[in-house]
């Protein structure tokens, strides 16, 4: 590598271009399928849409104005919020509970850990179809079991007051596996000396978990809250398969609403749907910003 300095300059510049060549394949994909669509989404959101789904010219912020005066969309936002709360925290709490028990040096840990991680293998479609069968009001297992306790047939997915709870329940189940893997990985990486010191000092059981272990795995829990929230906001398959957004729109979340406006029944209302998509993007970006900014400082990092 002994090159005269003048030549070295051009060589380095050539190297810089070569480096860009390595980035290029990924950049092309990002450009065509992420960044351009992002611009296009913004453009669509300020345009009207004719019956055939073609943009019908600039309409300014009319779509956004419609959004926030449309009572249906306000319901969508509320449903999305409720669905997120009903799924994120319970799925983390249950996974944390299981992980802490598994961490307590019991027999067959490997077996249990693998078994409890199985929901992670399920796709949204496979899990939803199984839950669809379980929720079936006429011959589903859930009502079958309840009948032994004298409970009449429950309309899990068609009762307007119940449907969101049912879909959320199925979603919690889908998330347990992933959450458990993350928390278990965090517990596995805890420093042995700290735990041992605490144990020798007489801390055990609940005390050990609350005062020593919990603070040490806050990074994992915080990570799960953020990732889980974003993941829940993007949920679609379980709603499409289990309730199609109903009954009476009580399970129509933001993403399902985008689908409904743009694609269901050949609606092709791309302008209005794109405005909703931009709301989704904004919410996700705000949560990401919160992750980087405010909340991260309160988390216990080693």
């Amino acid at each position: 590598m002994t090159v005269p300095t003048a030549v070295a300059g051009t060589a380095r510049r050539k190297g810089a271009w070569a480096a860009l060549v390595y980035l290029l394949p990924a950049l092309v994909v990002f450009g065509v399928f992420i960044f351009w669509p992002l611009v296009k989404s913004m453009l669509l959101s300020v345009q009207g849409t004719d019956i055939l789904g073609n943009p019908s010219g600039y309409v300014g912020f009319v779509n956004y104005g419609t959004l926030f005066t449309d009572p249906e969309f306000l319901t969508v936002l509320w449903v999305t919020f409720a669905f997120t709360i009903l799924t994120v925290l319970p799925s983390i709490a249950i996974a944390l509970f299981i992980a802490l028990i598994l961490h307590g040096r019991i027999r067959g840990v490997r077996f249990f850990r693998t078994a409890f991680a199985l929901p992670f293998a399920f796709s949204v479609a496979t899990a939803s179809v199984i839950f669809g069968v379980l929720f079936n009001p006429a011959s589903g297992v859930l009502n079958g079991i309840l009948s032994h306790f004298g409970v009449g047939k429950v309309a899990w997915l068609t009762n307007p007051d119940l449907a969101l709870w049912s879909v959320s329940g199925a979603t919690v189940w889908m998330q347990i596996g992933y959450n458990l893997l993350v928390i278990s990985a965090g517990l596995g990486a805890l420093p042995d000396d700290v735990l041992e010191a605490a144990r020798l000092d007489g801390a055990s059981g609940f005390r050990l978990q609350r005062s020593i272990i919990m603070p040490l795995i806050t990074p994992q829990l915080f990570f799960l809250v953020v990732v889980g929230t974003i993941h829940s906001l993007q949920s679609f398959g379980q709603i499409k398969i289990l309730t199609v957004g109903g009954p009476e729109g009580r399970t129509t979340t933001l993403v399902y609403s985008i689908y409904e406006q743009a694609f269901a029944n050949n609606n092709s209302n791309y302008g209005y749907a794109s405005a909703q998509a931009m709301v989704l993007l904004l919410i996700v970006l705000i949560i990401t910003a919160l992750q980087f900014g405010v909340l991260e400082r309160r988390v216990f990092y080693r």
């Binding site: 399928f33 669509p37 791309y270 998509a277 989704l280 993007l281 996700v284």
Partner: peptide
Amino acid sequence: VFLSTMMIPFESIIIPNYLL
């Protein structure tokens, strides 16, 4: 640039992708 691709939910850009 690479980092930002991870913050954009695909559902928010799925319409233009479909049209494409």
